[in-house]
């Protein structure tokens, strides 16, 4: 347990969509930190085989830090974390979480905010909405989901947001046309996307054709680390070797072997886990290092990136 982890109690569990469960977390002692819209926490899940750590957006109103709420989608090819949350965690259980961190804060100087959520990607926007309403910001929410699996909060959102709310249920053959969504937007518009990589890429590609500047596009992709071929990692300082399996990340394998690596987002965005590499070929999968930095092959983000070679020597 890292020194600043917070012990929380699961005060309530609710099924908010066929595949999504919501957990209300309260402090066991003292109080929880206030937080900013778009924040997430890393939840530690002590499974039987190993400890899972996943980042989840806080979906409560940031003005109310009496409890945190998170929502977890049961992943089709879960690596263990979401299954643990769905099957093991009950009301009254205690969990360890990190303090909130924010890598997806609204651009308050924008004149128009377009929020684009897919499935469980609605979660960060749940904390945006109350603050945007308080600030009387101009926004619209576009929500893509499959009602047989996801679509959490759609009814309350429709009621609260009225004409600012647009839903697209692909189980009812409703599609969101990205080109139409982005067309004819005025200066000062910013778009925020939380969803799978494919959706983010679609928006980026349409925006580029339309001549949008890159910096008005904000996205958060908390995709779980993708599997890859197994490899061996060696620590240069001690010679210790660690095996990285097909379905675990380098960071997870290091943690399992009790090699401490600072980390924050566990999704290749924040840069906290950057680790120097002495030997071996890196398969970069992060959004943090620049193209030049990646080409140097001397630094790896172990939360998502892996090795091309069979062996990677870390300079730690």
């Amino acid at each position: 347990m890292s020194t600043d982890q917070i012990k929380v109690r699961v005060a309530a569990v609710a099924q908010v969509a066929p595949m999504i469960r919501e957990f209300t977390l309260t402090a066991v002692t003292g109080s929880l930190y206030p937080f900013s819209p778009g924040s997430h926490v890393v939840v530690e899940m002590p499974g039987e085989q190993k400890i899972y750590r996943n980042a989840y957006s806080l979906l409560s109103d940031s003005h109310d830090a009496s409890a945190y709420r998170i929502a977890v989608r049961l992943q089709d090819n879960s690596r263990g974390g979401s299954v643990f949350m769905h099957q093991q965690v009950k009301e009254g259980d205690e969990l360890l979480i990190s303090p909130p961190a924010n890598l997806f804060i609204p651009q308050w100087n924008a004149q128009k905010h377009i929020l684009l959520a897919a499935g469980v990607g609605i979660t960060p926007f749940m904390s945006y909405l109350p603050e945007m309403q308080r600030r009387q910001a101009d926004f619209e929410l576009h929500y893509l989901f499959r009602s047989k699996q996801t679509g959490a909060y759609q009814l309350e959102l429709a009621e609260q947001l009225g004409q600012r709310f647009f839903s697209y249920d692909s189980d009812q053959a409703q599609r969101c046309n990205i080109s139409e969504l982005l067309a004819d937007r005025p200066l000062g518009t910013h778009i925020y996307i939380c969803g799978p990589e494919g959706l983010i890429k679609d928006v980026q590609s349409v925006a580029e054709q339309l001549g949008w500047p890159d910096s008005v596009i904000h996205f958060e992709e908390f995709a779980a680390p993708k599997p890859g071929k197994p490899f061996t990692v060696e620590l240069k300082s001690t010679g210790k070797t660690v095996q990285v399996g097909e379905s675990e990340s380098l960071l997870e394998a290091l943690e399992e072997a009790e090699v401490a690596v600072p980390n924050l987002c566990r999704g290749g965005v924040c840069g906290q886990c950057a680790t120097p590499v002495a030997e071996g070929e890196i398969e970069h999968r992060d959004n943090y290092l620049s193209v030049d930095e990646k080409a140097r092959q001397d630094c790896v983000m172990p939360c998502v990136s892996r090795a091309h070679s069979d062996r990677l020597v870390l300079d730690i």
Binding site: D4, P99, A101, G271
Partner: peptide
Amino acid sequence: LKYLTAIQVGR
């Protein structure tokens, strides 16, 4: 700058 922008709450 990367270091400073990553400073966390409580640290």
